[in-house]
Nucleic acid binder design. Sequence first.
RNA 1: GCCGAUGUAGCUCAGGGGUAGAGCGCAUCCUUGGUAAGGAUGAGGUCACGGGUUCAAAUCCCGUCAUUGGCUCCA
Length: 639
Amino acid sequence: MIHITFPDGTVRQYPKGTTALEIAASISEGLARNVLAAKVNGKVIDATRPIEEDATLQLLTWKDKEGKATFWHSSAHLMAAAIEQLYPGAKFGIGPDIENGFYYDIDLGDTVLSSKDFEKIEQKMKELAKKKDAYVRKEVSKADAIAYFREKGDEYKLELIDELQDGEITFYQTGDFVDLCRGPHLPDTSKIKAVKLLSVAGAYWRGDETRKQMTRVYGITFPKASELKAYLHMLEEAQKRDHRKLGAELELFMFSDKVGQGLPIWLPNGTALRTRLEDFLKAEQIKRGYQPVITPHLGKKDLYVTSGHYEKYGKDSFQPIHTPHEGEEYLLKPMNCPHHCEIYRHRPKSYKDLPIRIAEFGTVYRYEQSGELHGLTRVRGFTQDDAHIFCTPDQVKDEFLNVLDLTKYVLQKMGFEDFTAQISLRDKEDRSKYIGSEENWEKAEQAIMDAVKEAGLDAVVEYGEAAFYGPKLDFMVKDAIGRSWQLGTIQVDYNLPERFQLEYIGPDNQPHRPVMIHRAPFGSMERFVAVLTEHCGGHFPLWLTPQQYAILPISDKYSDYAEAVQQQLAAAGIRGNIDRRAETIGRKIRDTEVKKIPFMLIVGEKEKQAGTVAVRRQGEGDIGTMPVAGFIDYFKKLL
RNA sequence: GCCGAUGUAGCUCAGGGGUAGAGCGCAUCCUUGGUAAGGAUGAGGUCACGGGUUCAAAUCCCGUCAUUGGCUCCA
């Protein structure tokens, strides 16, 4: 007998060689039906594998991340099996699960697959799933594995096998389809009830553009048809909220071929929104001891040679600008940091001056590959809500706390509730690739962990993800429809202070090197406005939205009264305009609704006589008539 | 940059080897209306750009550019 310890701490006895599935069945039939895989001693394995010794056991279902991953990985196999039957001779690369679903890279020879073929493949997958074929695990020798795929003529699998050790190679078989795979997999295919292929795309074998391009088919599956329906609904919702679509509809921004790819042009509405965001953050930063500065959009090449950015961006980015003067070269700034370092050097610093917090909404230019560009989230010219904090190593923790607090405050104010952090630290073993003293790194990493703990922030720690010049923390937010975005970032930097020879005089009357912290709560104005637009579906927070109301006169006879109302609202700091068109009131309401303007104030004879406005809330309808002062009160309570 | 898709009026799109279509928007006129589209008339297009095939190209072919879904990358 072996002892199985469950997550709640209870221990039960089972015969040696019992499977997780059998254990589940001993608890309840329903549980057994729902088990997708098992975590045994912390390792995810097939629920059908015998457990040979005492172990901790977690039964994985659809609710668990690993359960979903197993489900989708098995679905990738199912799709490959279907494609193999429909397209004999197809060769397979890799087919993993991903965040939402799975994909498989396939070499179909000359056959071109398009979304028109999806239904056929989906049908085949469903047909195969119904057969309830088990996913059978087989340990094979390297020689046998090579023989099998050589026979099949699949050079991709042969290449993968070549990199594996003999003795650790396993095959999984479902029906007639055999795949090289580490597993784990579902007990059988019947769990896969709902299937949807999502897209095809080209993808290089092993991500290497010098190698063969394969067809990557993306799909997603669910254990229930209703869940697929809900997922597709979410995708539709995401499409409706796409900031490129809303940005055009609400006239926030545009692009012009004549101006250039990836160079966003902010229209009046977008500018109103962005300016308000900037003003909000600026005011908050001044409260927290930041000093705003303004620096030029260019800098001499030498500046970037000193900073090291020339090496990184010089060749692959916008080319240097040559002036009429011989040999003079300027670069569009890819970063604000070098300019800020020069500000630090402006005059000698004492330890008593630190920390110094230099802030700038700095527009930077980076040449992104054309395929990279995407709406406002990926552009070639963007404005960072940048600031650099220069401090002593001992001040790092307090500064981090300050920045975490600011970032949390700012994001909450925008209606983001769900955020987490990712802390990127050094590789645990290889420390050679990092610059800066061991002592300072140790101090900074500890400071970040402590600050995050004190701030009460959920964080995951990733080792080996730190930049060569310092550890960092990224803010991840979840939006209203459950997607994660990386926004704010805080990075410690030991490199630039070194390169720019930054110093401060300590209490010991000796020069010391300050630590530099880069931080941007929004990341960039462009990206943030994009994420915010999608998060709130174009219904921006009331305090932020470009137009807070529209006055809709019943006819042009009430224009004067409309203007009087507008003046009162303006005096109260509420912004909006008057729809003076000679249209019916129904029409004006419709157009204003579509523009997502939060309040409609309808004025006609009755309102003019009584000094009131008939208030309509966007998306909700008539909320009653009130005196203008009453509306102002009502409105202010909502801010 | 690479692979795929797309490019027709300001917008959304239909059509398609033989003189270019709709709805919305826009302009003018009529209408002065009470909570999601009032009516009439009209203007708007080198069918992305360049080349080729053809008696004839917006349509077929090639190239370029842009947009878009991916691949690598980052804010």
